[in-house]
Amino acid sequence: MITVNAIGDACPLPVVKTKKALENLEAPDMVEVFVDNETAVKNVTKFVSQTGKKAVSKKIEEGRYQILIDCTGNSEEKDGSKEIQPEKSGGCAENTGNAGGTVVVISSDRMGEGKDELGKVLMKGFLFALTQLDTLPEKILFYNGGAQLTCEGSDVLKDLEFMQEQKVEILTCGTCLDYYGLKEKLKVGSVTNMYTIVETMAEAGKIIKP
């Protein structure tokens, strides 16, 4: 039995830890994942269903859930558990069949609309999740408020530096850096211009915008 402890981990760490555990299995075995909330249960079981494996989950106590993943080929329903049926989902498709590569465009230092604090947490989670994809994007474009993420003081620099090391091209709008007074504080990637941004988006096989 392989155990993954994701208690206290924020999204997307429970899924990332589960993914790594499944990839590192050297022989058929059971994998158990512990999480502390129902959202994490749903996220992990949905991911497992997309891999073609079966999972059962149960609430052990308040704030503690167990997810059992059968990697032996023999799936049995456990007492007090419920089998998680595969859900239909587009998932994270690999970049195949596209004329160009995948380009991520980020126009803000936060993700979505609503509470700014939550939006920043979501953006941090999004960029970390991006580093965990089997196929990384070809380029990431930062403009407007997103330009702040590539500069001194950003709490996502390590994730961006990791992707740059993996040959992901990181480009930040020079006009935006000038506007925010950040041109001398750029820490990762290089400065670009609006023509290159438009050209890159026009030639992309797929564009992802959080």
Rank of each mutant, 00 (worst) to 15 (best):
Asn74Glu: 15
Phe126Trp: 05
Thr72Asn: 06
Lys17Tyr: 09
Asp134Met: 09
Glu26Arg: 14
Thr45Ala: 11
Ile84Arg: 07
Glu77Asp: 12
Asn144Gln: 12
Val4Ile: 05
Gly189Gln: 00
Asp155Val: 04
Glu62Gly: 09
Leu122Thr: 00
Gln148Arg: 07
Phe47Leu: 04
Gly181Asp: 01
Ile170Ser: 02
Gly153Gln: 05
Thr175Asn: 14
Tyr180Lys: 01
Phe162Thr: 15
Ala129Arg: 04
Ile170Ala: 02
Asp70Cys: 12
Glu138Val: 03
Ile69Pro: 09
Leu171Tyr: 00
Gly146Ile: 05
Glu184Ile: 01
Gly73Tyr: 06
Ile67Lys: 08
Cys71Thr: 15
Met111Ile: 04
Ser57Lys: 07
Thr135Glu: 06
Val31Met: 05
Ser190Leu: 10
Met194His: 06
Lys58Thr: 13
Thr200Trp: 02
Lys59Ser: 10
Met111Asn: 12
Glu32Gln: 15
Asp70Val: 10
Asn24Ala: 10
Asp116Ser: 07
Asn37Ser: 08
Gly174Tyr: 05
Gln50Lys: 11
Gly91Ile: 11
Glu38Leu: 09
Met30Arg: 08
Thr172Leu: 01
Glu117Asn: 08
Leu177Phe: 02
Lys167His: 10
Val4Cys: 10
Gly153Thr: 00
Pro210Asn: 08
Glu38Arg: 04
Leu177Met: 05
Asp116Cys: 00
Gly181Tyr: 07
Lys19Thr: 00
Val16Ile: 12
Glu62Ser: 11
Asn98Ile: 07
Lys59Glu: 08
Thr45Arg: 13
Leu25Phe: 01
Lys58Gln: 15
Tyr195Met: 12
Val104Thr: 05
Thr18Val: 01
Met30His: 14
Gln166Lys: 12
Asp109Tyr: 10
Thr135His: 03
Val156Ala: 03
Tyr143Pro: 00
Gly145Pro: 01
Tyr179Met: 11
Gly80Cys: 08
Gln148Gly: 02
Phe128Ser: 03
Gly63Trp: 05
Glu184Arg: 00
Gly146Asp: 01
Thr18Cys: 13
Lys53Asn: 14
Asn193Cys: 09
Asp116Lys: 05
Val104Ser: 02
Asn193Glu: 06
Phe162Met: 14
Thr172Asn: 04
Glu62Phe: 07
Lys115Glu: 15
Gln50Arg: 08
Lys59Asn: 11
Ile208Gln: 06
Thr72Glu: 02
Val168Asn: 00
Lys183Tyr: 03
Gln85Ser: 11
Glu94Pro: 04
Asp155His: 02
Ala27Ile: 11
Lys115Arg: 12
Lys17Gly: 04
Lys209Ser: 15
Thr72Gly: 01
Thr45Leu: 04
Lys53Thr: 09
Thr102Glu: 12
Asp79Trp: 08
Asn193Leu: 06
Thr135Ser: 11
Asp178Ile: 04
Ile106Asn: 08
Ala93Ser: 13
Tyr180Gly: 06
Ser190Cys: 11
Gly90Cys: 04
Glu152Ile: 02
Ile7Lys: 08
Gly90Ile: 09
Val44His: 09
Ile84Asn: 15
Ile67Leu: 12
Met123Leu: 06
Lys53Ile: 08
Thr18Gly: 06
Val121Asp: 12
Asp116Glu: 15
Ala21Glu: 03
Ser190Arg: 15
